[in-house]
């Protein structure tokens, strides 16, 4: 596996979405290639510009962050998981970029709606109640 092949799979690698043999090939490359190894070790911390670049995302646009970066780290932002420097950059981008502000609002609404919409209880069909009780009586 070449460096470019590995880096193209960076996202799937970190999201545990690779087939076992591909993951093994990636791990083999990582153990042999110092630059990729260092890049991925930092990528595990999940807020590194080099790593974001390895995903093919560039650093410019509103403030010093791209929309792609902002949308990638929304959850970390909302969970207070960014360091102060990253947080300041994030806020600066939001001040300048309406699209990301809209997205952030919708993302937060989505989480609240999911929580609020959950059914507390679902009626159990009477036949199922009977089947469960019958299965218990039949069990040793």
């Amino acid at each position: 596996m070449r460096c470019a092949d590995l880096r193209a799979r960076a996202r799937d690698y970190f999201e545990d979405e690779l087939a076992a043999d591909v993951r093994e090939a990636c791990d083999a490359h990582l153990s042999e290639c110092a630059p990729c190894g260092a890049l991925f070790a930092r990528g595990a911390a999940l807020a590194e510009p080099d790593f974001t670049q390895a995903f093919g995302v560039q650093w410019r646009s509103a403030g010093d962050l791209t929309c792609a970066w902002v949308l990638e780290f929304l959850a970390a932002y909302l969970e207070q998981g960014l360091d102060p420097r990253e947080r300041a950059s994030f806020d600066a981008h939001l001040d300048l970029c309406e699209a990301c502000r809209t997205y952030l609002t919708q993302y937060s609404s989505t989480v609240r709606l999911a929580r609020h919409s959950a059914a507390e209880s679902t009626p159990v069909p009477p036949a199922l109640v009977e089947a469960i009780l019958a299965a218990r009586r039949a069990a040793p």
Binding site: V57, W59, T66, A68
Partner: peptide
């Protein structure tokens, strides 16, 4: 995202 990191389709407010 397009090349410069902007969203391909900007979200419109709900």
């Amino acid at each position: 995202f397009v090349e410069d990191g902007h969203q391909v389709r900007e979200p419109s407010a709900w």
